[in-house]
Each structure stands twice: as structure tokens, then as C-alpha cells.
Design a protein around this nucleic acid. Structure first.
Lengths: 191, 191
DNA sequence: AGAGTGCGTAGACAGTGTCTACCAGCCGTG
DNA sequence: CACGGCTGGTAGACACTGTCTACGCACTCT
């Protein structure tokens, strides 16, 4: 039940997030969001010029959420453990906040205003580069930024392939942790 | 210009693929496809019970295409070179057949009839496991199937992150090849 | 008190996916 | 040849969507 005292702009986003986690990305209709916010279907237009911009605002909540989970890991004492925790947080987010995860990385959303993703990416990537450089200061073969990029891609790929069941079908695993560990070992050298 | 002598079912898929590569996934409307096929908007229903099933049929063309590009690489003499070629084929497909790639891995498509993806996945994954086992018969730490899974995820992640520009923004690279090489070195051990 | 305006309403419009009734042409059969 | 049935496509309706525009309520500021 959304708060009644907040501004409509915030309430729309709030309702959207709620609707998203409750019924999936397919139900994020402009009119449905307006309906659940208790306003007419034209009202959102006062704050969001298009349907996509509202969806972007909703997705930014997800970016912020994910960013928050990641940010604290930068100062982890053991960088390897930090990376493992980061990977788990990422994958956990994808699994538990499935609808939000799908929305966040929808192609049509990312075409236009990438500011939300841009900030979240920078943050995530910053932590990643930090941890990677600290985790493997000895090996200097590929630049840390490249390793971080490859690792991020690996992480995201695991999340995606897991979400639609490709990994469960081919690799016979009921948990992503072995894959995550394999990825870490691969990109950082064996522990 | 689609062939006039084929059956309507085939022509619809054909028109869909054409429309997809020409104007992107957003224009793959049921009615628009019917329009371009020169038939009324109700006609597709005779062959595809829903819009999604038509989209699935279109995506299967992509699965088949990608599968074909990959299949020949199984018998590569040098498995390492084979994996590099596989990765390049995958990434090249994602870049040149962008609309098709987006459609193929759309979440709502993959929910229901995963048969298309299932077959393609099996094929791709089979080749991948083959090459991986041959490429690193010495190291036996993680099972080859896990390595193959992690490598596939890495590959797919690179493709995704590249498509929406996240990698270009963070990692400052104008080509995916370094990342691909880094991924291969990581998962297979240095060359 | 009265003008101005921020904010939401309500209706119209084109377009969509799905469903249903219809029907043109072709088939094999009598 | 005539005719019934079926295949495959048409056309319209329905509920729904996103966008646009005209309108008006209620409130503020002078």
C-alpha cells in the first residue's frame, strides 16, 4: 500500500516497483500504474513525458538498490572474498529481484537515457576494478581493467543464462556458486 | 521482396526476419508482418496461435543461423583456435544481427516454448564442451562442463554488455577481441 | 478579491493482440 | 456434372495500450 502523502511522481515510481516485483515487467502499463496510484491515466504525463521515461525511473530504483548492495564491498579486507561476495550479491539480486533485473537491462530502456545505467555501471565497475587490482597485484598480464570487464561480463552472463534456465539445462547444476567460483578462479588465477 | 510462391506460414517468418533486420525488434507487430506479407491481420492466426509463437518462429531462424555458424567449428584441429573462432562468431552474430540477437534472448520469448533455444543451446554447448575438453586435457581441476558453462556465460555477457555500450563506457576499448582473448586465457589457462 | 497557474481529469485517436462469424474456392464423392 | 465439406483467408468487433489536447478545479500571490 503506497504512501498517500508523497508526491505523485514518487508514488508512481513506488507503485511501479511494487507492481514490478509483484506481477512482473509485463504488467508495467502506464495506465495500470496510474490506476493503482489512484489517478487518471493522463496524470503521469505531468512528470514523465513518455512511458519509457517512467520505466527508466523505476529501473533506476533497481540500479540504486544493486549499487547499494555492491558499494559496501569495496573496503573488504580480503579482496578475493569481496569479489565472491560481489558476485553473490549480483546473482542474488538477479534471482530474487527477477522482474527488476529484467527491466534494468531491457534493450529499449538502455537505448535512450542511459544515465541510470551509466552511474550504476561506473559504481559497480569501480568496485570491481578496485577489488581486482588488489586481488591480483602479482600477475600483470592483462590490465586490471580488462580483467574486471571480462569478470563483469562473466558475472552478467551467468545471471542471464541462469535466469532463463539455459545453465540448468546444459550444465546440470542447481546452484550458481560453482560457476561463480570457476569464473573467479579463472580470471584471478587459482586461489 | 519475399517470395510469392511459398506457403504463407513460411512467408510470414520470412517477412518477419526481413523486418527485424531492417527496422529492429520494435516493429515486429503481428499486424505489420501480416501487412507486409500482403495478407489480412487475422491470417497469421491460422498458423500461429499467438503473436509470441510467431516471434518464436522468427527467433528460431536466428537460432538455426547461429547454430550453423558454430557447428562447423567442432572439428577444428586446434581446439584453442576453434574456441577463438567460436567466440568471434558468437560476438559477430550479436553485432551484425543485432535485432535478431535481441529477439532470440528476450525473456518473454524464453518463458514458454524453449524448444528453439533448447536445441540451439544443446548444439552450441556440445561444441563448446568438446573444444574445451580437447583444449585443456591437462588441467582437470573444474570439470570441463563447468568450464564450458562459465565460458559460455562469459561469452554471452560480453555480447550483452557490448551491445548496450557498457563495456565501451567503462573499459575503454573499441573492439571486443581483447576481452574475448582474456576470457579464453582465463578459462583455459594461458596459451 | 481576483488573476494566474500548477496539477490532475476526461475524452479522443491511432494502433495493438485476440476472438468470432463469415465466405470463397477447391477437393473428392455421389 | 452437381454438391457437400473443408482449408485458408477476410473483416469486423472488443478491450486495451500510449500519446495528445482541451478543460477545470483549487490554490497562491499580489
Amino acid at each position: 500500500m503506497p504512501d498517500q502523502d508523497t508526491t505523485l511522481r514518487a508514488r508512481l515510481v513506488e507503485v511501479g516497483v511494487d507492481l514490478l516485483t509483484r506481477e512482473g515487467p509485463g504488467s508495467l502499463t502506464l495506465r495500470e500504474i496510474a490506476r493503482r496510484a489512484g489517478v487518471s491515466h493522463g496524470a503521469p504525463r505531468r512528470y514523465f513525458p513518455s512511458h519509457l521515461s517512467l520505466l527508466s525511473a523505476i529501473a533506476q530504483v533497481g540500479y540504486h538498490d544493486l549499487g547499494g548492495r555492491i558499494a559496501g564491498l569495496r573496503d573488504e579486507a580480503d579482496p578475493r572474498a569481496g569479489l565472491l561476495a560481489l558476485g553473490r550479491a549480483y546473482l542474488d539480486f538477479a534471482r530474487t529481484q527477477r522482474g527488476m533485473f529484467e527491466l534494468m537491462f531491457r534493450h529499449e530502456l538502455l537505448r535512450g537515457n542511459q544515465i541510470g545505467l551509466r552511474d550504476a555501471s561506473r559504481q559497480l565497475f569501480g568496485v570491481l576494478v578496485d577489488l581486482v587490482t588488489r586481488a591480483r597485484h602479482d600477475l600483470a598480464d592483462p590490465e586490471p581493467v580488462v580483467v574486471a570487464g571480462a569478470l563483469w561480463a562473466n558475472l552478467h552472463g551467468i545471471a542471464q543464462l541462469w535466469l532463463w534456465g539455459s545453465l540448468q539445462m546444459t550444465v546440470q547444476l542447481d546452484d550458481v556458486d560453482p560457476l561463480l567460483r570457476a569464473a573467479l578462479d579463472a580470471h584471478l588465477g587459482p586461489a
